[in-house]
Amino acid sequence: MKLRRNRKGPITMPIVSMGDIAFLMIIFFMVCSNFVKESQIEYKSPTSLNLASVESSSPSVAMDKEGKIYLEGKPVASADALKADLEKRLKEKDPKDVKGRSVLFKCDLRLARDDFQPVMEAIVGAGGIVVAVGDLLKPSDN
């Protein structure tokens, strides 16, 4: 009995366009994502039902669980120092430019009023508009 030899060679995957696809994915990630500037700050976001999407391109002020203040991820000594720093950043902004004067405020939910209120007042005093950031609570979570 004659057996037919299998003439098919080894199966190869077409990988020519793999690099192109990979670079398209890189471009997608670069365009659609924001870098996490405050990844090292330990804070737990407050939650509420009454939240909407906010612009993430504004300067951000964060307060961690110990009450330390950060501007764009860098520690700031006090609320007064924060006010001075923000005044420099916002002085060229048009007072009517709401978007340009917006400052994201992220604060640990356990902090007491005496810790966070001076920071909010510093933002407003420097000419900023406080945009309080938190996590949206869905009615089903309640």
């Binding site: 990988i15 793999m18 690099g19 990979a22 670079f23 994915m25 890189i26 990630f29 670069m30 659609c32 994502s33 924001n34 870098f35 996490v36 509420s48 009454n50 939240l51 909407a52 999407s53 906010v54 612009e55 993430s56 709401v98 917006s102 994201l104 909010m120 407003v124 005093g125 000419g127 508009i129 406080v130 945009v131 309080a132 950031v133 938190g134 996590d135 949206l136």
Partner: peptide, 29 residues
């Protein structure tokens, strides 16, 4: 393609694509 995929992994790990939620307060300045 190896370099490209390394770059993709870097971007996936260092970025966030979640939408920020909050509200704009109208605190008198």
């Amino acid at each position: 393609s190896d370099i490209a995929f390394l770059l993709i992994i870097f971007f996936i790990l260092t970025t966030s694509i979640q939408k920020m939620t909050g509200f704009q307060t109208e605190l008198p300045a």
